[in-house]
Design a protein around this nucleic acid. Structure first.
Lengths: 229, 229
DNA sequence: TGTAATAACTGATATATATCATATATTAAA
DNA sequence: TTTAATATATGATATATATCAGTTATTACA
């Protein structure tokens, strides 16, 4: 029995660490491991979820499509995160779609287990609450950035964020490779505008590129740019 | 004993309704009623809160100031809402400032009561969780609107929202009177740009104005405009 | 392995919105 | 009430970013 939750380090990073042995056993017994290929959806906007996803490996984007076909990425998920809790807790349709950015390994946990545990274990509720409080703060920050920063500043910020959160390889390229389209949808700009800015950053020596791959060269300057200098 | 929480209808609208008699008594014994004048702050960005606020009367704006002095309003609070919970739960500094838009009456509840109850009463945690889930969804929606809608669309949406949430008076003017500056900070635009749009809406007969006051004339058209037609 | 499909890139131009300047109305204060 | 301070309004102009059109490079696939 290799892949039991009891032995899974991932849970240390999320609210599942508040579960006791019994609860954890129940989760482990009912969970379903899934592999999601790059580009595939975990769930889509407006769907009703009958459980949550615990991310063991890979990165996904949470996004929303507008009527004119433009996508806005609201958040990138990290390893160890639980996805879909908002919808399960509010007993609501999902307000966002989740799409794998690279190959993912997730565990699906049926909602009954989650809601039962929420009702009985206040520590678990509190943990979930803390995580959601964190998400809410980040969302507020994004709102402010969207209205007060230029696309250039947001792009600089995104680069610094990606390096900080997902690291880079031996050659100094970001480990998480996004398409130009994804970048545009994160900073909220037209793809062409964004490509132009990447070219500009490259010309100024702030970043380097090799095909899709992007490497952060002048992290501090990018940070300053993001902060408005 | 008039103003005891036990007799306060307001709590039916927020997570405090999950409290049992004993818990409610404790809250009531330790709460402090406060009157906040229009323009005064309940708390400011970066502060540490030693409690939460339960809004009995009045409206406040949650906002963040940027380095260049521009303010972004993230949310308007409603009667019955609890403010400051995110910060208390995450044991974190506030990420937003709260300022009274009109005269307010709030009850301050010390954080110990809140955290103790969160630890002992899973129903309360769950209620708080549901409210935060709702806030998070709204925040996500704002992010998407900020990036995908024009200022004009966002303004139209704001008018419809204000009418729906705060109603209007006998003469058809919005009950909640905001300054042009506040409007600009809600939709994330320069004040002059916003004023111009108000003039335009007025010219087209979508709204009417009388000094600061704004009345919604063509609600449906505004809604359509907000949705992109 | 070659060809189609898709993504990345660049240029020209249009447009929404910001900024600066200034006038008028409204509110606060002396 | 009169003056000062602040908010609202409008015009002219600048600027960031979107849009449209087209080219080159990559990737997928038959």
């Amino acid at each position: 029995m290799e892949n039991r939750c009891e032995n899974c380090i991932i849970r240390q990073f999320n609210s599942l660490r508040a579960l006791n042995k019994d609860e954890l056993k129940k989760v482990s017994d009912s969970k379903i491991s899934k592999k999601i290929k790059r580009g595939e959806a975990l769930f889509i906007e407006g769907q009703k979820l009958d459980g949550v996803f615990c991310v063991r490996e890979g990165v996904s984007k949470l996004s929303k499509l507008s009527s004119n076909g433009k996508e806005q990425i609201v958040k990138l998920t990290n390893r160890g995160e639980i996805m879909g809790q908002r919808s399960v807790i509010a007993e609501d349709f999902t307000n966002l779609s989740a799409t794998a950015i690279n190959d993912m390994e997730v565990c699906f946990i049926p909602k009954e287990i989650i809601t039962n545990t929420l009702n009985s274990n206040p520590y678990f509720s509190l943990e979930v609450l803390r995580h959601m409080a964190h998400d809410l703060k980040e969302a507020d920050d994004v709102i402010v950035n969207m209205s007060q920063k230029t696309v250039k500043q947001r792009l600089a910020e995104a680069f610094v964020y990606l390096k900080k959160n997902y690291g880079d390889d031996e050659e100094g390229f970001l480990s998480l490779t996004l398409s130009r389209d994804d970048y545009a949808n994160i900073v909220g700009a037209a793809t062409e505008s964004l490509i132009r800015m990447i070219s500009e950053f490259k010309k100024k020596g702030l970043i380097k590129t090799e095909g899709k791959k992007i490497g952060i060269v002048e992290e501090e300057t990018l940070q300053e740019l993001a902060d408005g200098f």
